[in-house]
Amino acid sequence: MTTLSNKTSETPRPVVGALLRTARRNRDLTLQELSSLADLSVGYLSQVERDIATPSLGSLSRLAAALELELGHFISIPNTRGLTTSAKDRETIRVREGGMTYQQLHGEFVGASFSAFLITLPAGFTTETDQHFGEEFIEVRSGRVIFEIDGQTYDLEAGDTLHFRSDLRHQARNPENFDAVVFWLGNGPTFQQRAEIAAVATDE
């Protein structure tokens, strides 16, 4: 079984829902207004604020940008600013306990146009339904993942790949009772502040 990371922080994770609700209210935004800014439905945002739904890293990045916050306001993210990452030292990014985990593979530099992660989907986990600009490439490294893309079903096992436009409604689920690991490559809004982060790094 492929393991995502051998380095996991022991620091308790923040409750995303409470942080999101506080940040929204501090900016005097209604759920409808935040929905328009982040291009996410009101019903979905309500579920996230009540910790019923777990946002993907991409959706959380869009919410952070809409609220003029850094992604690190909601979750702990690795301080990766170089061109390489070490397999033995990579940290795991987790939005919420029990949700997907992400291991960052891409480097950081001004003008970078895509992000890459190893993503683990827990047993029985179903992602949110998403739709945004960009495109995505998936390779299943272990386990099985079923993708629903624009009404079509794609049942993938280890070694299978999938490449699709992100503006098509898409969702993924792990139907098995064990984790699935996928390699994800995309140029959508996963890290909207990457260019700014890299620019700051070059100035230090």
Rank of each mutant, 00 (worst) to 15 (best):
R13H: 09
E204T: 11
F137Y: 13
N26I: 08
E139D: 01
P175F: 05
Q192P: 06
Q32D: 14
R24S: 11
A172F: 01
Q32W: 04
D160N: 10
Q171G: 03
Y102V: 07
L40W: 04
L45E: 13
Y44E: 10
L40N: 07
S9Y: 03
G98I: 01
E139W: 06
A38S: 15
R13N: 04
T202P: 00
D167V: 03
A123H: 09
S9E: 12
G159S: 03
L29D: 13
G111K: 00
H106T: 13
S36E: 10
E196A: 13
P55T: 07
G43H: 12
Y154C: 02
E196P: 01
K88D: 12
I93F: 04
L37F: 05
S166E: 09
M100H: 01
R24Q: 11
T84A: 11
E68Q: 15
I138C: 06
S86H: 10
D89T: 12
G107Y: 10
N187F: 07
T30Y: 08
T190A: 03
S76M: 04
F133P: 02
E157S: 14
L60Y: 06
D28P: 05
R81P: 00
I75V: 15
L168I: 01
F74G: 02
A23T: 12
T80G: 02
N79A: 14
S9M: 08
G186D: 06
A18G: 07
H73W: 07
A195Q: 09
T2N: 11
A116W: 01
S56N: 02
F164P: 02
A18L: 13
N187L: 08
